[in-house]
């Protein structure tokens, strides 16, 4: 890009540079997304096809009634996430969202441990009537009914 180049060439070089960078960024993004995007599972899928422990995923379902236990340290909880066909045990250390109760829907972010327990880094529950995690919104009515029957 010295001044020896013709004007047309400098423009061409600049355009090529920009294109290479943008295409490079796009390719890199596509490659990284394949490895880093966190997939959403329901318990049935997680049991049938467990994700590897080093992969961050999300697990969604109902907190099974009667399964919620607190460890003696007072901050670790364990519960079962249920979709009516399978259950996955979940462990979470932290302050639970305010509307997290047995029988309610939950989305857990974390990874599946080697022992088959899902270790959650974060729990998403219904915040209020207007703010529901997207996955919970689509949970079938049948699952909800079932969850309600179990709580009764």
């Amino acid at each position: 890009m010295t001044s020896g180049l013709k004007p047309k060439h400098q423009r061409l070089v600049l355009v090529l540079l920009a294109l290479v960078a943008i295409i490079g960024a796009g390719t890199l993004a596509a490659w990284a997304l394949r490895n880093q995007a966190s997939y959403f599972y329901v318990p049935k899928e997680m049991m049938a096809n467990p994700p590897s422990p080093d992969r961050g995923v999300r697990l969604g379902g109902m907190v099974k009634a009667g399964s919620l236990k607190t460890d003696p340290d007072g901050v670790t909880i364990r519960f079962l996430v249920d979709d009516g066909e399978a259950e996955v045990p979940v462990k979470f250390s932290g302050i639970v969202p305010d509307l997290f109760v047995e029988g309610s829907g939950v989305v857990a972010e974390g990874h599946l441990g080697a022992d088959g327990t899902f270790v959650a880094d974060n729990l998403l529950a219904k915040h209020d009537e207007n703010y529901v995690p997207r996955e919970l919104q689509d949970m079938t009515e049948a699952q909800k009914r079932m969850a309600i029957e179990e709580t009764n």
Binding site: I22, A25, G26, A29, L33, F40
Partner: peptide
Amino acid sequence: SAILAIVLVGTLYPLLTEAFDVRVSVGPPY
């Protein structure tokens, strides 16, 4: 512009995969 492309792709990716009924979320690891 490259960073912009990366953020844009990462932000729209979940919307794109949802069209194919695959649910993903993209976060800090990406």
